[in-house]
């Protein structure tokens, strides 16, 4: 069984890493690509690379950042391939949202989630990736810069752009 050590020096198996980061990797893939099947591909390809690279992973920085960086590169690679192919925009499959307690709550929540999804669609891919890592996944600005391999000031600029655009689009939910 392959294991590694995270920054708190706890052994983590591939299975534990998958349980801990599958949803986060799926979220990153979906938020960038806006297609649930392609986001599933991001998860699978990311963890294939995690398994291959785990023996040589030296524990530089948090393991989350390492996995997110692989996931981000996979999503961008899939995005480039998709751009080169002739695709039908109607064929995109949207994410299945978590089940809610009551029908009424479910309808309200589905409406809100659809609005949040549509609002993010107006942002560019790099801005969506930055916003997802910082404001949805909760990484620090420094860690986001490390994952995306850009400067911290570029992260801040993208975040400001994302938050302002979303503020304008979602005004009715913010009052």
């Amino acid at each position: 069984m392959q294991t590694t050590k995270d920054t708190t020096d706890q052994p983590r198996t591939v299975s534990e890493l998958f349980d801990a980061f599958a949803n986060a990797t799926y979220t990153l893939g979906y938020r960038i690509l806006r297609d649930s099947h392609l986001a599933e591909d991001v998860v699978q390809e990311t963890f294939i690379k995690v398994i291959r690279s785990l023996p040589s992973y030296r524990g530089e920085g948090p393991i989350a950042g390492w996995i997110y960086r692989i996931g981000y590169r996979e999503a961008i690679a899939i995005s480039r391939r998709r751009r080169d192919e002739v695709t039908d925009p109607e064929s995109a499959t949207f994410a299945t949202l978590p089940a809610r307690e009551s029908v009424e709550e479910s309808v309200m929540t589905q409406d809100l989630l659809a609005r949040l999804d549509a609002a993010m669609a107006e942002l560019s891919e790099p801005v969506r990736a930055t916003f997802t890592l910082r404001d949805i996944q909760g990484l620090s600005t420094k860690d986001v810069a490390g994952v995306l391999e850009i400067s911290e000031s570029a992260v801040k600029m993208r975040l400001a752009r994302a938050r302002e655009a979303l503020r304008v689009q979602l005004k009715e939910y913010l009052e």
Partner: peptide
């Protein structure tokens, strides 16, 4: 706050 609470998705 909205995205922190509702932005995360579950892998089916």
């Amino acid at each position: 706050k909205l995205y922190k609470e509702h932005g995360m998705l579950e892998l089916p």
